[in-house]
Design a protein around this nucleic acid. Structure first.
Lengths: 171, 171
DNA sequence: TGAGATCAGTCAACAACACTGACATAATTT
DNA sequence: AAATTATGTCAGTGTTGTTGACTGATCTCA
């Protein structure tokens, strides 16, 4: 079997686009793409002794300034202890600021410090660049398809919540 | 900002599809989709005391029966020691069979046992099902766009090799 | 006001999976 | 015979995740 001219070409045959073979290609493609997608920030993080978990926390704190611990737990779907270790380190290093909640003093509101914001840019800009090049090269129709398929890959139970979070930042 | 009717809708404005906001949405979407995509096999693996690393090894042994250790290392991009631990466990549990190479007796050829094949099906079928439902729902044009964008997200240096691997199984 | 619920933080123990560096053995190539 | 290659293994380390239990501060409601 020879490679198609364009990597996105799908066999012309009637229903071949849902064949086991095509599905496997999708599975492998998202595996490799995700791996490469995370490779840029991973290198920057490694230099500072941080990991992907720190990046995720930083990302969603930047995304929703003032988010509480519980809110972050809800988005990241990890245990309190996992998040706490990561957050502790970010706060100790002065990248994240934790302040007592104004209405409810049990809560903590999380913000990025100036240094935290700087790191966030450093981490996200290679990923944005990667997406920008990909989007430009693939074109707007391909991007619409990409988003549609990804949205449908989400767990049914969470799809609405996740899409709402991604598109509006709402809980 | 209110959510669009369809999650894949892109602002009608001229060049808005390359805005920082749109790029961020892509970044978050692939994060959540990948997380959900791996959730089904993770549960099956956990019951058997295995992890994602075992799944990846099983997947590519099924994909390329008789693959050598070096070949698998090359695909997975991990260290020999990481792979060895995982492979040791799979061989000890009778899921993978390692046999001395025929031409070159230094090499080992890896195959799935009957039980290994059975586990492979159990792991991959929920993922195929997920993709099948997504593809059906999104339609062939969306799938073409999805593949195009993913292909462009790959690292430039490896794109050709990865696409060749995904599409033909060739090294 | 007092009881119970909630939010955050922490302790201890554990496991999966990646890493580095070093070294051994067997088989092949030069 | 010497160098190279493929595999396997040792020991140590680090990140990120898990469970379960417990404390303290604060809020809510009866």
């Amino acid at each position: 079997m020879e490679r198609a001219d364009t990597p996105t070409q799908i066999p012309a045959g009637a229903d071949q686009w849902l064949s086991e073979e095509q599905l496997r290609q999708g599975i492998e493609l998202i595996f490799f793409a995700y791996r490469d997608f995370t490779s840029d920030p991973d290198m920057i993080l490694a230099q500072r002794g941080l990991g992907r978990a720190h990046h995720r926390a930083i990302h969603f704190i930047k995304r929703r300034p003032g988010i509480t611990i519980a809110g972050l737990l809800n988005i990241l779907q990890v245990t309190k202890q996992s998040l706490n270790r990561v957050l502790r380190q970010l706060i100790d290093e002065g990248l994240v600021i934790s302040s007592v909640g104004e209405q409810d003093r049990r809560e903590r509101n999380l913000h990025l410090s100036a240094e935290g914001k700087q790191l966030e840019r450093a981490l996200s800009s290679p990923q944005r660049e990667r997406f920008k090049r990909s989007y430009e090269s693939a074109g707007p129709e391909a991007v619409a398809g990409f988003r549609k398929v990804l949205a449908e890959l989400l767990n049914d139970a969470e799809r609405e919540d996740v899409l709402s979070l991604v598109e509006t930042g709402a809980p």
